[in-house]
């Protein structure tokens, strides 16, 4: 290994220095932000600089809310609209657990600002149902046991729905690609695959 600019290469002593500033310094100096002078999700009567008004359609119903700009779509759905079928798993858009449809396309709602969904049509797992009746994709997931613990399932089902919206008769490769953003730690993948294929076959 070549000798890399020595002064900058790591040593345990200067690590202490580096990390100390990042943890204590930055944290202590973080400004107290004005939004916390009011309750989160409580709709302020008076106009506020830090809140944004937002209208969108969720599961076919128009929703108008005042939110902090940093609110994610998943937080809006779960905390404010109480649509807890949408799960937050990694909160970084890295697992697909929070997948909902935005204008017919799959998006990670935990990694999308709610404000960026303004004016759009959002469909969540709850919106796939007709009353208490399951959607054919949901039925397929039961029939083919496309789940174990079930926590990633709403996201898997919504990703499957996005595939079928794009192409009601998708190829196996299209399904594999469409489902590739949805992690399942129980690894029920073979049955998830069967479930989506079965749901697609109903369209054939």
């Amino acid at each position: 290994m070549k000798d890399k600019s020595k002064s900058r290469v790591f040593s345990r002593r200067n690590f202490v220095k580096g990390i100390g500033t990042s943890v204590i310094g930055t944290y202590a100096a973080a400004p107290v932000l004005s939004k916390f002078s009011m309750k989160i999700f409580e709709e302020a009567e008076t106009e506020s600089k830090t809140k944004e008004s937002l209208s969108l359609h969720v599961n076919g119903k128009k929703v108008s809310v005042l939110i902090e700009p940093e609110t994610t779509l998943a937080e809006l759905l779960r905390n404010k609209l109480k649509l807890t079928g949408t799960k937050i798993i990694c909160n970084q858009g890295e697992c697909g657990g929070c997948t909902v449809l935005m204008n017919g396309k799959a998006v990670s709602s935990c990694h999308l600002l709610a404000i960026d969904a303004a004016g759009s049509e959002i469909i969540t797992i709850e919106g796939l149902m007709s009353g208490e009746k399951l959607h054919p994709i949901q039925e397929a997931f039961i029939e083919h046991d496309g789940l174990q613990c079930g926590f990633c399932t709403p996201g898997q089902v919504m990703a499957a729905q996005a595939i079928l919206i794009k192409n009601p008769k998708p190829s196996k490769d299209e399904i594999l690609q469409g489902m590739s953003g949805n992690l399942c730690r129980c690894a029920a993948y073979p049955n998830i695959m069967k479930s989506v294929i079965a749901a697609a076959d109903k369209n054939k």
């Binding site: 290469v9 790591f10 580096g18």
Partner: peptide
Amino acid sequence: GDFHCIRKGGDLCYAAAG
């Protein structure tokens, strides 16, 4: 991560020997 590395204005590249 929470490392004040050279890319964040610090002095070190932690990866060089990490």
